[in-house]
C-alpha cells in the first residue's frame, strides 16, 4: 500500500514536471550549441596576432601641410559624421560605427584594405565602381542619406583620409583583414535563438529595444548605435544582409570580444536584426517596400 502511494506520488510529480514548459532563456543562452558550465580560472587569449595585419600610420604622423589639413577634416567627418557630415546623413550613425577604431581595425572593414582595391567590380551596382562611388553608396544606404557629389569637399576629405591611412599598401591585392570575416552556415538560422543571444550578449549596450543609447550630454549621435528603428541603416545597406551582419558580428561583437560567438550564433543574431523594422530601401518604390520582403535575407 505504501509502495503504491509512493509510486502514485512519483507519477504525479513527474507529470507536473512534464506539463511545465521551460522558458528557453531559463535553460541555456544558446540552445543550438550546448556548452558545459564549469567554473574555471582560465582566461581568454587574444585572437589577433601582432604582425598579422597591416598597421596604418598613427594620427600624430599626419603631415603638417595642406594634405594633412584635408586628412584631418576627413578624419573628423569619418569619426563624427553626425557633426561634420550631417548635411548628407539621414540617420544617427557615424562611419566608425561599422569601420571600428577610426577605420583601422582589421576584420571591421578597414579603409586601408579597401582603398587599394578600387576601382572594382561590385555585384550590387553591376558595374566597376570607383572609391568615391563606393562612399556614395555608404551615404545612400548605410547612413540612409543622400550621396555627396564626387567633387564635394566632404568626399575629397574622406578620400584623403583613406589615402593617408593606406599609405604603403599594395594596389589590387586583397589584404588579410579586409572586410569582415568569412563564415560558414551549418544549419538554418533561427530568430528564437537570435533573440536569446541578443538579450544576453547585445542588449547591455544596444538596449533591449535595439534602438541604441544617445549621448548623455548634448553632443549629436549615439554612444551605442541603434541596430534597427528609424535612426539606423536602411534596408538596402550591406549590414541589412543577414550574412554580412553575421560576418561583422562574429569578428567584432561584443566589442572587445570578437570571435567568441560561433558562425551559427552570429547568423542567428543577424537574422534577428534583419526581421526588425528599419528605413525603406531607396531603390524600390514605396509599394514594393511595404508588400515585398526586404532584400538581404538568408538564401
Amino acid at each position: 500500500m505504501k509502495l503504491q502511494l509512493i509510486l502514485l506520488w512519483l507519477i504525479l510529480i513527474s507529470s507536473i514536471g512534464l506539463a511545465q514548459e521551460l522558458d528557453p532563456l531559463e535553460v541555456r543562452p544558446s540552445l543550438a550549441t550546448p556548452r558545459l558550465s564549469i567554473p574555471t580560472n582560465l582566461t581568454t587569449v587574444p585572437v589577433v596576432n601582432p604582425g598579422e595585419y597591416f598597421v596604418p600610420p598613427y594620427v600624430e604622423d599626419i603631415p603638417d601641410d595642406n594634405f594633412g589639413e584635408l586628412v584631418k577634416i576627413g578624419r573628423n567627418i569619418f569619426v563624427n559624421t553626425q557633426k561634420y557630415g550631417k548635411r548628407y546623413v539621414g540617420n544617427g550613425l557615424n562611419c566608425t560605427n561599422c569601420h571600428l577604431s577610426e577605420g583601422r581595425k582589421a576584420n571591421a572593414a578597414p579603409l586601408w584594405a579597401a582603398y587599394g582595391l578600387y576601382p572594382m567590380y561590385r555585384h550590387k551596382n553591376k558595374e566597376v565602381v570607383t572609391f568615391e562611388e563606393r562612399i556614395q553608396d555608404c551615404f545612400k544606404y548605410s547612413l540612409d542619406g543622400i550621396a555627396p557629389m564626387v567633387d564635394s569637399p566632404e568626399m575629397e576629405a574622406l578620400v584623403a583620409y583613406a589615402h593617408w591611412l593606406s599609405k604603403g599598401v599594395p594596389v589590387g591585392i586583397a589584404l588579410p583583414g579586409r572586410g569582415f570575416t568569412p563564415i560558414k552556415k551549418t544549419r538554418t538560422p533561427s530568430t528564437e535563438n537570435g533573440e536569446i543571444l541578443y538579450k544576453t550578449q547585445c542588449a547591455i549596450c544596444h538596449g533591449k529595444d535595439g534602438l541604441g543609447y544617445k549621448y548623455e550630454d548634448d553632443r549629436p549621435g549615439y554612444m551605442f548605435p541603434p541596430l534597427w528603428g528609424p535612426d539606423s541603416f536602411n534596408r538596402a545597406a550591406g549590414m541589412n544582409k543577414v550574412k554580412t551582419a553575421a560576418q561583422f558580428i562574429k569578428a567584432n561583437m561584443p566589442l572587445g570580444k570578437g570571435f567568441t560567438l560561433t558562425d551559427d550564433e552570429a547568423l542567428d543574431i543577424g537574422l534577428y536584426m534583419w526581421i526588425q523594422s528599419r528605413p525603406y530601401d531607396p531603390r524600390r518604390s514605396i509599394i514594393t517596400n511595404i508588400f515585398m520582403p526586404p532584400p538581404g535575407g538568408c538564401e
Binding site: 587574444p46 585572437v47 589577433v48 601582432p50 595585419y53 598597421v55 594620427v59 571600428l100 577604431s101 577610426e102 583601422r104 581595425k105 582589421a106 576584420n107 578597414p110 549596450c205 549621448y215 548623455e216 550630454d217 553632443r219 554612444m223 566589442l255 572587445g256 570578437g258
Partner: peptide
C-alpha cells in the same frame, strides 16, 4: 580614442563614454 586596432582592442571611450 583608438585603442589598439592591430590587436583587436577597442578604445576606452567606445564604452566608458566620451
Amino acid at each position: 580614442l583608438r585603442g589598439k586596432p592591430e590587436y583587436g582592442l577597442p578604445s576606452c571611450d567606445s564604452c566608458h563614454g566620451p
